[in-house]
Amino acid sequence: MSHFGKSDLMAVAISVLPEQQLAALNDGYRRAVARKRLRFALSAAIAVAALLAAAVGAEVDPATFVAKIGNFVSYFDRIFTLESGARVWSDPGEWFWGFHKWLALLGETVLISYVGTLSGAVLALVLNFVAAKNTAPQPWLRIVAMRYLEFCRTVPDIVFALIFVIAFGLGPMAGVLAIAIHSTGALGKQFSEIVENVDMKPVEGVRATGAGWISCMRFAVLPQVAAGFAGYALLRFEINVRGASVMGFVGAGGIGQELVVAIRKFYYSDVSAILLLIIATVFVIDIGTGWVRGRLFGGERT
């Protein structure tokens, strides 16, 4: 740039318009900006009004918050303190006194999520071809499948768990079934969205050989979508591990039962120990599934 003279640059860069033309342009610009600002101000006002209404509805009380925020900070102080008053890390043996029991429960949590996700994925695999626009065998069947999937994913898994605990009895079985149903809904939708984007030419090719609907799905659609399906299923597994960690709150198995007891009965150092174990497990699962997904998509997406 240095070899250009300054005056050269200026001559190229600026050409001043006549005054009237400039005034008109400026005026138009100002009006456009003013309209945009007005719209922004209006939407901001509506948003603020909605937030205020929500604050009233949710019984927000800044005074309580200010008065009790100290509790929140000191809560973290307390959960990192042993009963003897020492910091938890000064005595890891005492802090993680229930390590083996908790590890077994975490194993159960991961297993609940695995069995639930796999069953949900298999059901979703069957249903999504029926629910996808381009592969649905019958229009009315598609509507039924879509409504069913919607029901499955709108009702939160923990609500299913609450009901199943009464029907099937306390224990991990209720958790597995709840996760399976919720995953069917969530995965069914994601799967059918993938299927709606496939190339239909292979389907035509397979159909031209006289194949039935099932063969078309198996040999023309499935090969195109298998990697995507696996990716979503792994993601769901990851989400379900988190979900399974609280299934125990309603008695549906896993580590949640221990955690809720520790929180409710103020076993402070147990709370931090169990929380750390849950976070560590979620990390490990995250990294593991991330690695598998990376390999599935050949490094193009993660």
Binding site: S245, L259, I263
Partner: peptide, 13 residues
């Protein structure tokens, strides 16, 4: 999970 946070906040507020 959100539910765990909810339990913690119930302890506080």
């Amino acid at each position: 999970d959100t539910l765990i946070w909810a339990l913690v906040w119930i302890n506080v507020v």
